[in-house]
Amino acid sequence: MLEARLEQANLLKKVVDAIKDLVQDCNFDCNDSGIALQAMDNSHVALVSMMLKSESFSPFRCDRNIALGINLTSLTKVLRAAQNEDILTLKAEDAPDVVNLVFESAESDRISEYDIKLMDIDQEHLGIPETEYAATISMPSAEFQRICRDLMALSESVSIECSKEGVKFACQGDIGSGSVTLRSHTNVDKPEMNVEIDLTEPVSLTFSLKYLVGFCKASSLSGQVKLCLSNEVPLLVEYALANNSYLRFYLAPKIGD
């Protein structure tokens, strides 16, 4: 059986909120290392990969591999009943028909309990190769969100060019063009404001802004976002969570010009 207790419901609420517009029905794969999720969007352009390590829960117990097939719209409805600060416990039997969610208020004696019916989801699982990326950029997640939103007002796609000069986000649209260039920057007082660019070779790739703006819904999960790029491979956008847990998005590049 599975029993996983999260100190704050907020974490799961934010994760589900960040991915629910991209993917609808997903398997939450539970085993003794934690709860993982991998799903592609309907058009197979983007892939979500979430890992909530067992250390992110206290306690965490999962004796066998259990796949919880959950509709994220249903999960969102139930999670709306949880206060951000509530303690959240997920429970399921070994061959479950439902997943049980319990929300406990730390301040009152209120205990809410919900069951969500599970679905049988036959999901393709993709093997993601270990990649040495040509460029890795760490930057404030709010800054990345703002750049994507600003450029989407002009164009549906953005080129991300990374060179030793810095990283340049550029777009061209009907009304004109725009670009934002960032250079490495260290803020001793506010490390969340740092921009770090780790480059082994120059990279230039073009991506759909609609997807990037969607990924940025995860911005509230982490002050920093990491962008990993290599020519002709999908972009990795990573939001690191506590205890080595993460929410990652992969986005296939645009082809040709």
Binding site: S43, V45, H125, L126
Partner: peptide, 14 residues
Amino acid sequence: PAGQGSIKSFFNQS
């Protein structure tokens, strides 16, 4: 306009 690649062409099906 540039075409859009599929994520499946980059990652192996396992």
